[in-house]
Nucleic acid binder design. Structure first.
Length: 820
DNA sequence: CAGCCATATCTTTTT
DNA sequence: GATATGGCTG
């Protein structure tokens, strides 16, 4: 063989040995450095490892592996030496041999890694620090969320879009208030046009990079959409006057900045030699465009994702981004990671079977070297309490047998509504648990208020924050005064604060002018105190004192004690920020407050079961997973079923795939005969996704035999039931044990259960109306019933409304009235 | 302007 | 069934 080929071959072997802890595909992904690269990473396939090691590889070795360059003077002797080096152990090779292959390595500041969540960004940063053993190298790498990276760019170049660099960020709640205000200005009634749908439409428009102008010109024909477009226009105008951006703006305006400013675009395109994007299946149009722009010069864009785990369509993600990546980037290389390091083969087979029913996917098949493992346990319970009790029992059994500890268990549900029953049962049982997704600390009123003060001090133009606190504590500034200020401000196209500061110049503000001037002075004095170098924590205290906010809470006495405590905690947060930040500033603190939620810092060390929605479980793994409520009507939900849209069913199926693949060792699937939902008992059939799992993978855990009441509709495994029954008892320590046990076993005299069981469940509002009837609906107005279809316990009406066209409505939800 | 009662609503959520 | 919001009244 020719000397050059031998050299290249042995070089690659040396790299492969050093990276032998990775599998072939993972290694290929790490070594592929140049050009567009799509990594299709199945659940549990070591995605983050690959991402981090690839970045480290790029910085250490550049294109060393795939480069065909052979150094001048390479001869037989060189090759012999390298062949000899193969005998060395991996760390020796890495230390002594690999450096001679370095080929055009990349400085750390030229690498950009983008994620969706702070948690993911932090994990990548931490692992990079570990990889380099040198914090400064890792620190130079741009690793952050889409939003944090865009804000970083906008703080520098925002002036090109006429944003001041101290712009504020509006979260969903602020933006809701602002949209509501815009609708008021336009005299659009929130009843005819629900604010939620307006918010959603505007948000989707921004995701798709549509300006108010393009939105209006595209949708001018439709009355409803035109109204939404007008709100969008007004809202956007106000954001600008407030020198504020909402979450969607942060991305969209960055794209605009890069598109419209060649020098800025060039600067970042030259800067970022390598762009890496995590969770690519969750990107929307704007984010896709952003990554394309940033990588537009060097074209070294790597994206990792899993089309089968795309579950955020409702917030604008377009699965097409990942499905057609190689159409956008014709020369893209695709690497599939299908080896799973998390679950047993049974669990993977179940997941493969379910997701295999989807058509709109690239196709992957997860496998593991772990072996089959236990079967998936399928359990039918009578109703939702029994379902919860079953989970408690299984957890107690396993813990008592020392097979697991509490933290090994996760309960994943489709909707938060399911969590109530579950939580109640767990609370009674004494099993320690942790529930994710409650109200966040930062969403509390007092925290939002103090943050609003700080935001207003940071950026006097911020209208929403000003309105939030101008009368908090009460300053006798009422609606009329505010309306007057608004009118003047809007007329002059200046900020509200500007008007308030000059309140004495406007006759309309006559009576309130002293109060308004006093408020302006308060804000300006505080601004001065900060400018004079007051440390942040002391400053926040000043704000609380001078504004009278703290006094207001103290005066309220015992009732508001919690709020005072929360404010103390907030100040601790400020102190924490100060100590970890080199140059703490108010702006920096506020940015972190807005862009970093407190959800990701829950205590993982506590030995407790975890409960959360399937959505929030994405990316996590647990030895034992319970999936309660696996019923058609819940999962997939009623809305999805009624939409009759294959796309939406596929999205739900992906969610089912995510749910199944969270489990490492054991998976419990639970469904019930009767379920109380929205105040009604419904009997849902088992989820279609469960029926898609091959029976051979499933063990049906039959409930214990019922008392001789003739209703044992399921095959009764009497002895098993008895057995389990007594096992259960052992672990209950408190007084509620008997009650729980009764529900589970169905042995007791729970009349309610008996009733639901014996009486056929009433058809909700069955056949109240017939085909041809004229009905009226609270939002849709009047219409004619086209068809009546019984569906489970409910009835589906297809109604042709006079004003809004044909809609399908469930009798239970649609409050319909007959008209004669 | 605050507090109370009536009413509507009922996926999924991070930034 | 539970909750959040809104409108109304004192």
């Amino acid at each position: 063989m020719e000397i050059n080929s031998r050299y290249l071959l042995i070089k690659r072997k040396l790299f492969e040995k050093v990276y032998s802890s990775l599998n072939d595909e993972q290694r290929d992904a790490v070594f592929t450095v140049n050009g567009p690269l799509l990594i299709l990473a199945g659940a549990g396939s070591g995605k983050t490892t690959v991402l981090v090691r690839r970045i480290a590889f790029i910085i250490k070795y550049g294109n060393a592996y795939y480069s065909d360059k052979v150094p001048a003077g390479t001869d037989e002797e060189t090759v012999k030496r390298l062949e000899g080096a193969l005998m060395l152990d991996a760390s020796e090779i890495e230390r002594e041999v690999l450096p001679e292959f370095i080929c055009n390595p990349c400085p750390p500041y030229a690498v950009l890694a983008i994620t969706f969540t702070n948690k993911a960004a932090k994990e990548i940063k931490d692992r990079l620090i570990a990889a380099f053993d040198d914090e400064s190298v890792a620190g130079d790498i741009w690793a952050g969320t889409f939003h944090s990276i865009c804000v970083r760019i906008l703080r520098v170049y925002g002036d090109r879009l006429s944003y001041n660099s101290n712009f504020n960020i509006y979260d969903t709640d602020d933006s809701k208030r602002a949209i509501s205000a815009a609708m008021k200005t336009l005299k659009i009634d929130e009843k005819t046009l629900p604010i939620k749908s307006v918010m959603n439409a505007i948000s989707r428009a921004k995701d798709a990079l549509m300006t108010p102008e393009s939105f209006l010109s595209e949708n001018g024909g439709d009355f409803r959409l035109r109204k939404i477009g007008e709100v969008y226009e007004e809202y956007q105008k106000n954001l600008r006057l407030s020198n504020a951006l909402d979450f969607d703006d942060i991305i969209m305006q960055t794209v605009r900045l890069l598109r419209e400013n060649e020098d800025v675009r060039r600067y970042y395109q030259n800067k970022f030699r390598y762009v890496c994007v995590d969770e690519f299946q969750d990107t929307n149009v704007a984010q896709f465009e952003l990554t394309a722009l940033l990588s537009g010069h060097h074209k070294n864009i790597m994206v990792v994702g899993d089309d089968d785990q795309s579950i955020y369509k409702f917030r604008g993600a377009t699965i097409e981004n990942i499905l057609s990546f190689d159409k956008t980037y014709r020369d893209a290389k695709i690497v599939k990671l299908e080896q799973n390091y998390r679950s047993t083969q049974n669990i993977l087979d179940a997941a493969n079977a379910v997701i295999g029913k989807n058509t709109n996917r690239r196709g992957k098949r997860l496998w593991t070297s772990k072996g089959e493992g236990e079967k998936i346990v399928l359990r039918l319970c009578e109703e939702q309490n029994a379902e919860s009790v079953y989970m408690v029992d299984k957890i107690n059994e396993a813990v008592a047998a020392s097979e697991a500890t509490y933290r090994d268990f996760a309960i994943l549900y489709r909707t938060n509504a399911q969590s109530n029953t579950i939580e109640r049962t767990f609370a009674k049982s004494g099993v320690p648990y942790r529930m994710l997704g409650g109200t966040r600390f930062n969403d509390r009123k007092e925290i939002r208020d103090i943050v609003a003060y700080l935001q207003l001090i940071n950026n006097h133009s911020d209208a929403e924050r000003l309105l939030r606190i101008i009368n908090e504590p009460k300053r006798k500034i009422g609606d009329k005064t505010i309306e007057a200020i608004r009118a003047i401000a809007s007329e002059n196209e200046v900020s509200l604060f500007e008007i308030i500061r000059n309140a004495d110049k406007y006759a309309a503000l006559g009576r309130s002018k002293d109060i308004l001037l006093g408020f302006a002075e308060l804000i300006e004095r505080l601004t001065q105190i900060l400018a004079d170098g007051c440390p942040l924590d002391a400053f926040v205290t000043q704000v609380l004192d001078m504004s009278g906010y703290r006094q207001m809470l103290i005066d309220a006495g015992e009732e508001e004690k919690d709020r005072l405590e929360n404010l103390e905690e907030f100040i601790s947060g400020v102190i924490e920020y100060q100590s970890k930040t080199e140059e703490p500033t108010l702006g920096g603190f506020l940015e972190e407050t807005m862009l970093v939620s407190d959800v990701d810092k829950y205590d993982e060390s506590a030995d407790a079961c975890v409960m959360m929605t399937i959505h929030s479980a994405k990316g996590l793994e647990f030895p034992i997973v319970f999936l309660p409520g696996m019923e058609d009507g819940i999962f997939p939900g009623m809305q999805t079923i009624m939409s009759c849209s294959e796309d939406e069913i596929e999205e739900e199926r992906r969610l089912a795939y995510v749910a199944i693949t969270r489990a490492k060792k054991k998976l419990y699937i639970i469904h019930t005969n009767n379920r109380m939902l929205y105040g009604r008992t419904s009997h849902n059939p088992i989820s279609r996704f469960v029926t898609e799992i091959p029976a051979s993978l499933i063990y049906r855990d039959a409930p214990p035999a019922r008392r001789n009441d003739g209703y044992s509709s399921y095959g009764s495994y009497g002895s098993y039931g008895q057995n389990q029954h007594s096992t259960v008892r052992t672990y209950y320590s408190d007084s509620t044990a008997n009650k729980n046990r009764d529900v589970l076993g169905g042995v007791g005299d729970k009349t309610t259960i008996g009733k639901t069981f014996t009486t056929p469940v009433k058809k909700a509002s069955a056949a109240l109306f017939a085909e041809g009837d004229r009905v009226s609906h609270i939002t849709f107005g009047e219409g004619e019933i086209l068809s009546v279809k019984p569906m489970g316990a409910d009835v589906l009406y297809e109604i042709s409304f006079d004003k809004v066209g044909t809609k399908k409505l469930m009798a239970t939800y649609a409050k319909l009235k007959k008209i004669n």
